[in-house]
């Protein structure tokens, strides 16, 4: 299992946070997802065999939030 930290721009409230947590949480291979409105970040644990850091970044970006990997 692996972990990725993604910077997420554009969230305005708790409902944005919940939307991302629910949507990302439904993806195959995602074990846990924690989104912080204050830190503008998502912390995701996932199975390497099923998904990747860039796929998860793209997923959030396609949701309409500017997403980039934090190294």
């Amino acid at each position: 299992s692996a972990q990725v930290r993604i910077s997420v721009e554009g969230m305005t409230c708790k409902s944005c946070v919940r939307n991302i947590e629910e949507h990302v949480g439904k993806q195959d291979g995602v074990q846990s997802v924690e989104v912080s409105l204050e830190d503008k970040e998502a912390l995701i644990c996932y199975e390497k065999a099923k998904t990747s850091a860039t796929a998860l970044r793209d997923l959030i970006d396609d949701m309409g939030f500017e997403a980039s990997l934090v190294l």
């Binding site: 409230c13 944005c16 949701m63 309409g64 939030f65």
Partner: peptide, 13 residues
């Protein structure tokens, strides 16, 4: 859409 975040997201995609 429930907030600015949603409408901005729609505009962005």
């Amino acid at each position: 859409m429930t907030c600015e975040g949603c409408s901005n997201a729609a505009t962005r995609v």
